[in-house]
Amino acid sequence: MTLAANGIYWSVGGAAILSDVSLDVRPGEFLGIIGPNGSGKTSLMALLAGIRKPQRGEVMLDDKPLLAHGRQAIARRIAFVEQQAETTERITARQAVELGRTPHLGALTPWSKADDAVVDRALEEVDMTHFAGRLWHTLSGGERQRLHIGRALAQQSPILLLDEPTNHLDIGHQIGLLQLVREQELTVVAALHDLNHAAMFCDRIAVMQGGHIVALGTPAKVLEPQRLADVFGITVDVERDSAGGCFIRYRRPDPRPAKLKLVAEAR
């Protein structure tokens, strides 16, 4: 199962959000997408998921234009967890995860015990079995996020797209969720804010800036101090280990000059 973006362009109100973006996702890899706010990560994820159509260029799924597959066929192949996905329906936690089975149901394939088993397993994997009967609106943001991941796992699509999947999660669940995703036999594309999460879990990382991909490669190759300074405006030390991994240690910014502080205080 292959997914690729070929020279895609997307704009809003005449302002380019993505410009000539090309990306081949390798089967079975965990690909991270990093970049500052406004760099185009969420727009790229929406285009890869088929929620939006490029104004130029094409997203390809198995060497065929993505949207030519049809909505149900796409959903059977690609599961997408959006950054902000909510509902006003009075549904339980379990019913939220059951929605992941929708692409597999039809007149000739009604709900079965096999579907129940898939949902049970997904709830267990995201540590939400004990919340199965709780109503959606009574759950915290972190609990809802874990259910979104559970719904995607219940979808059993070979490609999983995650837009900021660790939002609202405490650090334990952030690490646990990314490890869970890493252990699945899936092709994963995840937009991530935490650079050390990207270093820990990703096979490759694409760096976005101003609607372009400015670097693509292994974490050790991509996460370099000068590149992070250029893209994020931060000063870091990158520690590397013998296994080829890396860890980013952030430096505190230099103090503002006293003269600038006095001007600011006068205002």
Rank of each mutant, 00 (worst) to 15 (best):
R182A: 13
I51E: 15
L160T: 11
I149N: 03
Q145L: 08
I33S: 03
S140H: 10
Q84V: 12
A154V: 02
L216V: 00
R144V: 07
V12G: 00
A4Y: 01
A243D: 14
R146L: 14
V263W: 01
C202R: 06
A49P: 04
A46F: 03
Q179F: 01
M60S: 11
T138F: 11
L47C: 12
P103Y: 06
V97Y: 02
A96R: 07
K221H: 15
A5M: 04
L162G: 04
S242N: 11
G141T: 11
G211D: 06
D241G: 10
I149D: 05
I8R: 10
P158N: 06
A154S: 04
D230W: 11
L161N: 05
K64P: 00
D237H: 13
R252S: 13
L123H: 03
T129C: 02
P27D: 14
G40W: 08
Q179R: 15
G142P: 02
F247P: 00
L47A: 07
R144F: 04
A15R: 15
G13E: 13
I213F: 04
A68R: 13
D241Y: 06
A15C: 09
L223T: 03
S39I: 08
G142K: 04
M200C: 12
G150L: 08
P257C: 09
L192V: 01
V12T: 13
S39E: 09
L178G: 07
R151N: 02
I248H: 05
M128C: 15
E89K: 07
R256F: 09
P110K: 04
P158H: 09
M200L: 15
E82W: 00
G141A: 10
T235A: 14
V189S: 05
R252V: 13
V231I: 15
I74Y: 07
G50H: 12
A79H: 03
R249I: 14
R71T: 13
M208R: 07
I91K: 02
